[in-house]
């Protein structure tokens, strides 16, 4: 075998792809040829160098950049409703709706403290309208029936003109997640809104006085009804009204 052939075979034969006879011929040649022995040795050393040192590790920046690039490509590629940002937004919207619903159901039987903001708002809003009342009458026999079919309960309606609290009229309002009766009284120049709605029978009547933002609020329960009286009137006179109702 010539050295040239031997070297070709050495290059191929490394992977063991030579036939048995060829392999034996090569071995015989190499045994007797120093040059080819060196060649084989060098060849194996070179391959070993490549195996050990030519392999590279992907730099950390590549992993990070690749992750970002895959994210960007995915955003471009996804149908709109599947995009992560949209799914996030939808999830957040769902959470918002749930929390609103949860809060709404909670407020239906809310302790007085939670209704105060709504009550005050409704009071102020009623004063901003052209008229705070929908039925103008100081006659309880007119106002009380007017609420039939408008609220599912029978509010307490009294004309207290003789006591300095003339009944101006009534209004349908919406508070604490339900339709409520609003009675509008006047004390001198002060307007008093009395909101009434049914409440589960409680062990004892609760009374609470609140003063906020220059307004007075008084709340109590009686006979299965929750009352809220709100006005810029002072709390003492508000308490007088309560005693009269």
């Amino acid at each position: 075998m010539r050295c040239e052939t031997a070297r070709d075979l050495i290059c191929v034969g490394i992977d063991g792809d030579l036939s048995a006879t060829r392999t034996q011929e090569l071995r015989d040649h190499v045994a007797g040829c120093a040059d080819c022995r060196n060649f084989a040795r060098e060849m194996n050393a070179l391959r070993e160098d490549l195996r050990q040192y030519a392999g590279l590790l992907a730099p950390p920046t590549l992993r990070a950049d690749l992750s970002a690039a895959l994210d960007a490509a995915e955003r471009d590629q996804l149908p709109f409703q599947r995009r992560p940002i949209v799914r996030q937004a939808m999830a957040m919207a769902a959470v918002c709706l749930l929390s609103v619903f949860g809060t709404w159901t909670f407020l239906r039987e809310a302790p007085p403290a939670d209704a105060r903001a709504e009550v005050l708002t409704a009071h102020i809003r009623s004063l901003l309208q052209d008229s705070p009342i929908q039925i103008a009458s100081s006659d309880s026999h007119t106002v009380r029936p007017w609420f039939n079919g408008r609220v599912e309960f029978a509010p307490v309606v009294r004309d207290l003109t003789a006591d300095g609290f003339p009944l101006i009229g009534g209004r349908l309002d919406y508070l604490a997640g339900r339709r409520v009766a609003a009675l509008v009284y006047k004390r001198r120049l002060h307007v008093v809104n009395v909101f009434i709605w049914p409440t589960p029978k409680e062990a004892h009547d609760t009374v609470q006085t609140i003063q906020t933002d220059g307004y007075s609020l008084l709340t109590w329960t009686r006979g299965g009804l929750r009352f809220w009286a709100v006005s810029d009137l002072n709390p003492m006179e508000l308490a007088e009204l309560r005693a009269l109702l």
Binding site: G55, A58, P59, L62, R63, D65
Partner: peptide, 28 residues
């Protein structure tokens, strides 16, 4: 296979910076 991809890319273009770009585009 990221390391293998980077190794092949590097030995083909013989530039580390270019190899990174190539691997990124290839993966996309």
């Amino acid at each position: 296979h990221l390391d293998a991809a980077y190794t092949l890319a590097f030995w083909l273009v013989r530039s580390r910076a270019d190899a990174q770009d190539i691997v990124q585009e290839a993966y996309l």
